[in-house]
Amino acid sequence: MKILLVIDRLTNPHAGTEGQFLLLINLLQNAGCELRVVILANSDWLNKNPLSCSTAVIGSSSIKSPKTWWRVYRQARQAEVDGFQLAHIFFNDASVVCPPMFSLAGIKSIISRRDMGFWYNSIYRAVLPFTGKFVSCALSNSRAVANVTGEVERIPQSKLRVIYNGFNRTLSAEARVPELEALKVSGATIFGLVANIRPIKRMQDAIAALAQLDLNSHNPHLVIIGAGDTTELKSLASNLSVGERVHFFGSRSDIPDCLQYLSAGLLCSESEGFSNAIVEYQFAGLPVICSRTGGNPEAVTQDQTGWLYEVGDVAELSKAMAAVLNTPERAKAMGTTAKKEAESRYTIDAMLNQHLSLYRELIGVKS
């Protein structure tokens, strides 16, 4: 099969959507697909890290610019001549411009949706229901995201599909993280939060919940792994007298190795599509404490694989953290259950096979 993969830009291979995009490239190539990646805007990362397949950079990404639409159409026409019949499109601007332009060239479009639409502004809300008429399928990574996509973009139910993210995580018993090793040796119970530092992630709730725990028992600490400005969070931790218990690790490539030191994984977001962090926690055998929003309840079962609490309810978050401290064997058992579920639901093979099946269905190719 020949598949076009389209995205606004590639700047951070460790970010959720971009990481899954790059993973999909490798998987589809290994499955024998012929790929062409179309990117609206260039980036320093892309210049330093050329992709392993044919790549075309449009050089214009503004949906307000006629130049963007014309260049996308010209690229679509060339792709059609070269035998491409289907485009899988990621991110916001590409999913506005590409479906109608690709349709004019005779190429079908899949748009991917991976969050609860916090980026929908008045322009997107006005334009997407129109450009969505040219979409053959809207593919989401959770039922919650699919429902929002259908409602806001007016995509018919028959065109909504869900494929959960796929992961291939293995932990090496010899992979050590010195900073976390030292904390463990000191007797600390470590909670972890993996996410880039942004207001929507509500990391201040985790710090406030930590401050409400009995700090004289179990020696609780919080480790935050992700890029972003730590100034305000450090100030909050200091004001709540837990500055020495909150550790900022920044962006890291050894997250699976870090997770083996944790007693539970946290996610405090006010909005989530389907969290990669939750699944990574589960693959590491951790119970998950997360806000009840978006796709989180699809991944975490209350009192079986973790705890769910209402967004912003710091008292409930702290109560769940205290449960990990006070009943560690129960928390460990929940993590074991979570790991078994993750290994059956979120495999690389399952994700790849479902993508290939969808592509074949839309192109009209039998497996």
Rank of each mutant, 00 (worst) to 15 (best):
N49P: 12
A41I: 11
Q282C: 04
T170C: 10
G106A: 13
F130L: 14
S43Q: 07
D214K: 15
V152K: 14
A320D: 13
L222Q: 10
N168S: 12
N168L: 02
H88S: 14
Y261S: 06
L259T: 00
A320S: 14
N42E: 12
P328W: 11
L262C: 00
R143I: 14
L5P: 02
L46E: 04
N47Y: 01
R176S: 10
A206W: 07
E174K: 07
R292K: 13
L46T: 02
T11P: 01
E316Q: 14
V314Y: 02
P99M: 04
K108I: 11
E341S: 08
F274K: 06
Q204E: 14
H218K: 15
L210H: 08
A277N: 01
L222M: 12
I89V: 15
N353M: 03
Y281N: 07
R169P: 00
G228I: 07
G106V: 11
L22F: 03
T230W: 01
S142I: 05
C268Q: 04
E151Q: 14
E80L: 04
R114H: 14
G312A: 05
A146W: 06
Q282A: 09
L325Q: 11
S186L: 03
K319M: 02
V152C: 02
S271A: 15
S253H: 09
V97F: 00
R161T: 10
V300A: 07
A41M: 12
A227P: 05
E179R: 09
A188F: 02
S142R: 10
N42Y: 00
L5Q: 15
I163P: 04
L317W: 04
A320M: 09
R71S: 08
E316M: 09
I3R: 04
T231A: 14
E361N: 11
T347H: 06
N296S: 11
W70E: 07
M116T: 12
K201R: 12
I111H: 06
I25G: 03
G294M: 05
F283S: 06
A195C: 07
L262S: 02
S65H: 12
T231L: 09
Y124E: 13
A264F: 08
Q20F: 12
G265R: 04
R202D: 00
Q85E: 15
F84Y: 15
G306P: 01
L180F: 08
L325N: 07
A144L: 05
F21V: 10
V185W: 03
R360S: 12
D254Y: 12
S95C: 08
I224R: 05
K67Q: 14
S235P: 00
L267T: 05
T327W: 11
S158V: 08
L210I: 06
Q204F: 02
R161D: 06
V300E: 05
E244V: 00
T170I: 13
L22G: 08
G106Y: 08
V152I: 14
V223N: 01
A331T: 05
F248W: 10
A338Q: 04
F130D: 01
I224C: 06
E151Y: 09
P50T: 09
S103A: 13
L171E: 05
W45Y: 15
F102P: 03
V38W: 03
F102V: 02
A322K: 10
Y359S: 10
Q85C: 12
T347I: 02
K2Y: 10
I3H: 11
I225V: 15
L267P: 09
G132F: 03
R161L: 09
P199D: 07
S61K: 10
A299P: 01
V81A: 10
R198N: 06
I207W: 07
A350N: 13
F118P: 14
Q75P: 01
